[in-house]
Design a protein around this nucleic acid. Structure first.
Lengths: 206, 206, 206, 206
DNA sequence: GCGTAACCGAGACGGTACGTCGCGTCTTTGA
DNA sequence: TCAAAGACGCGACGTACCGTCTCGGTTACGC
């Protein structure tokens, strides 16, 4: 639950079944009809719920979408997420980034994730919720994997881990969202390699 | 003009004043009321134009926004854009990236650019137009500057220039659009440095 | 209480305070916001009562209004109503009709009485209750006064007393409800005179 | 009268077909579902018309109902209405009053006329329109018939014709609207007789 | 140099969705 | 153990825009 903006109604009396039906309906409709045609009325009808029940608990369509993702991620979770750590940083990053790209290319998630991204882009409040509840744990996992590599001497000591994470995922997300180029597994490899080595030439002895 | 979807009307008779009024109105309204409240009716009213005049020449709201940006960029241009080339790649990139960040932070452009970005995210056709007409020349200029550095031995020879460009601008665009962190000039510096050096430690000699 | 439609709950346990609060709130709201904006929710809120308490004891909004009038009339009564009988029929009728008109013109009663009248017009069940509980006794009093006049030879012997009553009060009620003309004391006088004398010319010797 | 309250849109462009469809739908729905369940949405749907088209041209539901009656009455008219004048006032009045009662008892008109009456009772503005456009001509016809009788010496000279009309029709309308008694042809006879003769006893020599 | 066809402003139209209000039912909770 | 409080599914409200479709009126072409 995401704490409606103001004077929240009595949460205790909330009907859990309706909440889940709404979030499921919202996510499913995003897949089926797309973001542009997603309407509160449509969600309510699909969920067999009164519109007011949506307006009562969510301050905006964006928050509904966000909560739908939250429900999904909580459903899948068996605890906090973590990146694989085989000791081979390049391999680990490549694997994870390929998985990310596969998800972004998955037609089940493409439309919904674009919708969420769009809403975040236009609503700072939602962006904050996203940063804290959805992106936060993931970002933390990525930072930890890079931190571990740093301690193993595989990363320069003066690297800002947040910048490092963005250096790897930024190009991919950007290419996906703005469709500035094809999003393939091979691209993941190239991004990881380039990010690790940097743009400047390196000494032959590595 | 952006090639209406079907049998275009006689372009010769098109009223230039109306076209400009529409695009100006669209851009101004984006600043003032934001993307969510931008309506064709609103644009028509602000531009003192019949709605049909908009529907006649543009296939979608996104295309109007796109053309508004196009008009702006053409107004400013004195030919094809080019990045500064002082020989110092890091300095040049930093300067340009700082300028980019300044523009993204400019309240006059923030809302309109977010609108354009999200329309692109949801409309592949618009994305193609964007890639060709607006992003294309800029991307070309960036590639050229990097190519020049590559020839000067300041960039590794096996670098994919597109990936290189995305490595620098991707993190910034991403941070801006999804609000995943503060967007400061100092951030520009760190991104350029990290991208150039890469994440791995470098030998003391250079 | 006015006989709820189905299996009435245990009347003995009914909370008298709530009943009075509801009826008072209903009547007051009718004055203040008018019939069109009168809502069960509004009544419940004003009476600090749960909506269910209203639905439990009254089958319709009309019945609530009706009971509100019933409470008022019972509060005022010191027994069954009776018309004055000074022996002068014309004077007595005129006086009572003027009083009726004064009440109909009283802004405190205008809206509520219109509400009651229109509810009756659309609900035969309510009409029956009205005829029995509110209108009945009054009608009876009027008939008695006319009967007394009949026995005194002031009324033709073949007159149907119900018709006679309607001949006097019908024009007034009609004018009030449908606003077909001004409702003044002078109008009362003319109606009584015309009704008593009839439309046809009379012999000079009365 | 059909002119909306304020700043009426350009009447010239009004679509006559939609206007008629709306009024017909309104009248039909009144018969079928009754006043309580008559909704603007229902009318619009039945008339295959956008809701806005109703809101654009009518200020209230009552005015729609009123206009529906107006259309009906204009459709039937072959000029201004007139009461029969055979010379026998009692017979003429009885015939007309019986016709009135037959119409009031006609299930096709009962609900719609109650609806109109109710709206008039709660909306003075509508009442004025009603008095002028619908009731006016009828009232005029009734007054004329009585005036003719007056000139023929069949009516007392000091009779107020408006009061006379109300003396005859008031009881009937009242009984119908408030359901205070059965509405039969025989009742029409009694009302006419009583009104003509008055309540007081008459001299044997008439 | 004169029709005539197009574009133009205006805005009514049939619709869809909005966000709100109230209905009548059902559930929780505190006195 | 009620009854207040109020969430719920539902339906209608009145408004905002959608994209289409006339309306005159005004250009600017082509005969």
């Amino acid at each position: 639950m995401t704490a409606p903006r103001r004077a929240s109604p009595n949460t205790a009396r909330r009907k859990e079944a309706s909440r889940r039906a709404i979030l499921t309906a919202a996510f499913d409709l995003l897949q089926e009809v797309g973001y542009a045609k997603l309407s509160i009325e449509g969600i309510a009808a699909r969920a067999s719920v009164g519109k007011q029940t949506i307006y009562r608990w969510w301050p905006s369509k964006g928050m509904v979408i966000f909560d739908a993702f939250l429900m999904l991620s909580e459903g899948a979770d068996g605890g906090p997420p973590a990146l694989p750590d085989t000791g081979d940083l390049a391999a680990d990053l490549t694997a994870v980034l390929r998985a990310t790209i596969a998800e972004l290319n998955d037609p089940r998630y493409d439309q919904p994730m674009r919708a969420l991204a769009t809403e975040i882009a236009h609503d700072p409040e939602l962006a904050a919720a996203y940063a804290q509840r959805l992106e936060g744990p993931l970002q933390q996992a990525k930072r930890q994997r890079l931190g571990s590599a740093q301690r193993a001497g595989q990363l320069a000591e003066d690297i800002d881990l947040d910048v490092a994470v963005e250096m790897v995922w930024g190009p991919v997300l950007n290419r996906w969202l703005l469709r500035t180029g094809p999003l393939t597994a091979e691209y993941a490899d190239r991004v990881v390699t380039t990010a690790l080595n940097g743009l400047r030439p390196r000494q032959p002895g590595r």
